[in-house]
Amino acid sequence: MHTFYAPDLNGPTFTLPEDESKHAVRVLRLGVGDAVELLDGRGGRYAAAVADANPKRCQLRIGHHETVAPRSYFTHVAVAPTKNLDRMEWFVEKAVEVGVERITFLRSARSERRELKLERLEKIAISAMKQSGQAWLPQLDEMTDYAAFVADATPETTFIAHLEEGERTALTQVAAAGAGCCVLIGPEGDFTPAEIALALSRGIRPVTLGESRLRTETAALAAAFTVHLVR
């Protein structure tokens, strides 16, 4: 069954945007009476049927719906985006498929990318939500200065993955406790010693994702997957 995103669903019918209408009618060949599914990104899952197969304004008639409860734990990955945006797009797609509630993009001292436009990443997140059958669309945050993020973080549920020497706990251990987990992932050059010290001074604990040295986007996905796996 084909799935469409309907964030502003209100009433017994819903009209797809023009680009989605064209795709539904001209590409998917949907006609009157054909069944589809709608997701509002907030847990709502709706059964619907095509009422008017207009390629510019395809109208759907809403039927049965259900509300999917959010997960009992909250996964938040805060990552310094790579210079190559394709790698961040890959991370967002896979993280949504695995299951993540929030992604924050950090501007750290060694960040190769200082600015980021969310429009493309939001579209990728929506597509991944539909493809994977998720009912909740993760929150994507604009670029945030590292120091400001750390200052507002909740130390009990925030962890920093870095490559500096020192004692670190496996993420699998700390993620198994509590109802939420936020993991900080640095840029390719890692967090600076000063940034690590700032996090530790705030009570944020250091964690390890394993023995391998991972690329930024791989580490971010490994963090999301690890939390999802142990919960």
Rank of each mutant, 00 (worst) to 15 (best):
A35C: 12
A35F: 11
V36S: 10
E37L: 03
L38D: 05
L38A: 10
R42L: 11
G43H: 03
G43E: 00
G44K: 13
R45L: 08
Y46W: 13
A47F: 01
A48P: 11
A48I: 11
A48M: 08
A49Q: 11
A49I: 12
V50I: 13
A51H: 13
A53V: 10
P55T: 15
R57C: 13
R57E: 14
R57T: 15
C58S: 11
C58G: 12
Q59A: 08
L60R: 13
R61E: 14
R61W: 08
I62F: 04
I62S: 07
I62Q: 04
H64G: 13
H64F: 07
H65S: 15
E66M: 12
E66K: 12
V68I: 12
V68D: 00
R71E: 00
F74Y: 10
T75W: 00
H76P: 01
V77F: 01
T82C: 11
T82H: 06
T82M: 10
K83F: 02
D86L: 06
D86T: 02
R87A: 14
E89S: 06
E89C: 03
F91I: 10
V92L: 03
V92A: 03
E93T: 12
E93D: 15
K94C: 13
K94R: 15
A95D: 03
A95G: 06
V96E: 04
E97V: 00
E97Y: 01
V98T: 14
V98P: 02
V98A: 07
G99P: 00
G99N: 01
E101A: 07
T104L: 09
F105A: 15
F105L: 13
R107H: 02
R107F: 03
A109K: 13
R110S: 05
S111G: 10
S111K: 07
S111Y: 06
S111A: 09
E112Y: 03
R114H: 10
E115Y: 11
E115C: 11
L116F: 03
L116Q: 10
L118I: 07
L118S: 13
E119R: 13
E119N: 11
E119A: 15
R120P: 11
L121P: 09
L121Q: 14
L121R: 15
K123Y: 04
K123G: 05
I124V: 15
I124L: 14
I124C: 14
I124Q: 14
I126N: 04
S127F: 00
A128Q: 06
A128E: 11
A128P: 11
K130G: 01
Q131Y: 01
S132N: 08
G133S: 08
W136L: 04
W136R: 02
